[in-house]
Design a protein around this nucleic acid. Structure first.
Lengths: 339, 339
DNA sequence: TTATTAAATGTAAGCGGTTACATTTAATTG
DNA sequence: CAATTAAATGTAACCGCTTACATTTAATAA
């Protein structure tokens, strides 16, 4: 080993005066090695600052101790807390998490899936169920353990750890209707390959169809995470003169906050002049003024459960079942009775 | 290859009727292969859903196409935008980013550094310069390219891509002083192994020392990212009757938002009764009411520059220089002249 | 046409670990 | 004490890929 180059098992073995097999055993199955030699090896490892080469290890042992997650974006907090919890649980089992972002683009998601698998990911966390066939075919053909989070379905083809977006939004809409609102607008991100948004919109529609003399407009933003775009959508909605909505339901909290800001900019009072709701219950929902009525999603529990599930599969328990988590409507000041 | 097991180069080679070397060349240096055979190989790859095994590849080529980043936490937005930009730039060069979180714990950071290096990370993004000697010794001994972000120093021992926390906070404090405030309190997270906070506090102190008859109290929270803890600190500060501060400067925006919320809960008006400032200018700074006076940090540019720098080093340009980015005070409604 | 050179492809040796199996050493038992 | 068994360690094959070098094939020049 030249100075500065990475030390290898052979270097450690030589320094400790043992064979490479013994070094390897010290690192992986220390109880199969005598106290004495283990000490010697530990000293040598310390001395050299040795870290096993992942490539060699993965190749030889066929275990990467690595999981992958592909989320749409890190820029807003929607996925952060869940992923953090996911990572914590994995870390407790000595598993490294590789994270990539797809930017809501299924093509990029597919590429990243392939990259992560190449990197040795033993399982994947994916967001939502909507993706091209070829992605699923790849997962199936390669028999890759994967958990779909942030949504839940009853089909047995995949494992879900999520919640019922349809039901949750229906509940929220029922609450809105109970407060006397009859003309509702939704500001939503694009639904292409986003089943969560799709479900939320359908949920709202389902609630409304049960009540007479109601109207629902859906206004789409170009993206899912831009408060400013939501503001523009809000502005356009306010220009309607027929069935002008008295409440704006946004498909997530970020959009809702954008709507609130725009309302303020237009000198409208929330909730006196217009009610606004969100979805997710991320941190800003509590912070914005007025505080946001929204749907609380148990992000941390979702992340933890997803991690546990993948760990179980990794441990050979292949019969894992989907987990459906509950959500609940959180009433705050951005929504009030129609006057 | 049994059904369902991962296809290997040999499988592809066999199916395409070529040698493994040719397959490898098709994937890595397609221009060294004839049009015709490349087509054949591509078909075979597609047919089998082949993804090269990272372990083998890394081992043979000694290139992992991987960088690592260790950030304190993902749970708040302070690092999210910068890291996202960092990742985007890397992705454009075909480099995968591995992210880990240390939870502000230098011991965990050290472990994660080792893990990432084992995984083949060719360079690291680290946050701040404060960490135990042994961490630096490891980096040096193994000659690991690394960039320190979110802070900047003039020493030549490391490469920084960051900003001057001391100066930025000094500027903000000068602004506060210019508005007539003389009794100032700081709410800050722990400074152990957090040089950014340390610098910010010293910066404020430096500004104050130049002006007579001023006072500065520093109140520490147990953690860096809890709005609630900042609220408690705020409450305690308001109980002071000697030199009760007229402005609370928080060491980041999350804490500042916590302080604002607590003020509201105590029926105090911000900024009429008390001024509050933050640091970072993350999204909530604009959203909270009143909007937060804070220090704008160019997170995206910082992430991009750090990535570019690591890419340069990877390309053999070893003489990279630190980059100092500017910050600027953003005046919003949470700070006003002392009446 | 044959000699020379370039392009395309193949052969096989590692890259740095792990682990089945062989061997040595120590402990236990009849 | 020798025979048996268990524990500790060593030897060497192999994991999947890349690449230096060798070989074949095609193109060009003499």
């Amino acid at each position: 080993m030249t100075a500065r180059s990475k030390p290898k098992v052979d270097d450690v073995a030589k320094l400790a005066g043992v064979s490479t097999a013994t070094v390897s055993r010290c690192l992986n199955t220390p109880d199969r090695v005598s106290e004495e030699t283990r000490k010697k090896v530990e000293v040598a490892v310390e001395e050299l600052g040795y870290t096993p080469n992942f490539g060699g290890r993965y190749l030889a042992s066929n275990s990467s101790k690595t999981m992958g997650a592909i989320i749409p974006t890190m820029e807003n907090a929607i996925f952060a807390r869940g992923i953090q919890a996911f990572q914590e649980v994995l870390a407790n089992s000595g598993i490294t998490l590789l994270i990539s972002t797809s930017g809501y683009d299924p093509e990029r998601e597919f590429e990243h899936i392939q990259t992560l698998i190449s990197q040795g990911a033993e399982g994947l966390l994916l967001i939502g169920a909507a993706r091209p066939k070829k992605t699923y075919e790849f997962l199936e053909r390669r028999n890759i353990p994967h958990v779909i989070a942030w949504n839940h379905r009853w089909d047995r083809k995949h494992i879900y750890v999520g919640f019922d977006n349809y039901f949750a939004m229906q509940e929220l809409t029922n609450t809105v209707l109970r407060m006397g609102h009859r003309h509702i607008a939704i500001i939503a991100g694009p639904t292409t390959y986003n089943d969560r948004i799709e479900d939320r919109i359908s949920g709202a529609q389902a609630a409304i169809e049960k009540i007479d003399e109601t109207s629902l407009i859906v206004k789409f933003c170009p993206t899912n995470y831009s408060a400013i775009q939501a503001g523009q959508a809000f502005e356009e909605l306010m220009e309607l003169d027929h069935h002008r909505p008295s409440v704006i339901m946004c498909s997530n909290d970020v959009l809702a906050v954008g709507a609130i800001m725009q309302a303020k900019a237009m000198n409208m009072n929330v909730p006196d002049d217009i009610s606004i709701t969100g979805f997710d219950d991320i941190e800003i929902a509590e912070i914005v003024a007025p505080a946001l009525t929204t749907v609380h999603v148990p992000h941390r529990r979702m992340g933890q459960a997803a991690a546990q599930l993948l760990l179980n599969i990794r441990a050979g328990k292949l019969d894992q079942k989907s987990i459906k988590l509950g959500t609940n409507v959180v009433l705050r000041n951005s929504l009030r009775h129609k006057t």
